[in-house]
Design a protein around this nucleic acid. Sequence first.
DNA 1: TTGACGTGCAACCTTTGGGTTGTGTATGGT
DNA 2: ACCATACACAACCCAAAGGTTGCACGTCAA
Lengths: 85, 85
Amino acid sequence: MFKALADPTRRLMLDELSERREQTLYELTARLIMRHEVAISRQAMAKHIAVLEKAGIVSSEKRGKFRMLVFNDEPIRGVMNRWLT
Amino acid sequence: MFKALADPTRRLMLDELSERREQTLYELTARLIMRHEVAISRQAMAKHIAVLEKAGIVSSEKRGKFRMLVFNDEPIRGVMNRWLT
DNA sequence: TTGACGTGCAACCTTTGGGTTGTGTATGGT
DNA sequence: ACCATACACAACCCAAAGGTTGCACGTCAA
């Protein structure tokens, strides 16, 4: 969970996904490259998605040929109060 | 900042430091080992402290022979609302 | 002042993480 | 039926992160 948030690329992905709730892997990759000027391959993005899914921050649903990604902020909400009184 | 929270050992350190606000490096190391059953050297702890200090989560003050560590939760508060509407 | 204690610093080792390349597979438009 | 598309899987590469070992330094009690 914390490790999932540790990478700057993944944080950018969450920025995009919190703006537009549903996107395919390809869409998201294109957006990152164009709007945030990062140079990254789709395969690398797929790995990041896997990490985010494992942490429960992103869920995905297979729709035919596409894979829709959905952002979920609950894990972040739940865990941040650990050291906050 | 996010990377500082990514390591489980550092999170345990923050647990201890949020309980007892002021501790020396030695105290903290001993506490981690005994209460959380981690096997770690003082030098490794010093590295973790350096990371936490760089992130602003822990500040330290040299008092004679000792180095007092103080927990600071402000950076955490400030940054976690990034994806929460 | 001498020696133990708490700490700082640097070189090294090992594992993990992020990335690329390459190939394979299923879907869908034409 | 065909081929481009969107994706999955696996092997490999490289840099960074976490950890250890070894030694040096300042502080303080006896």
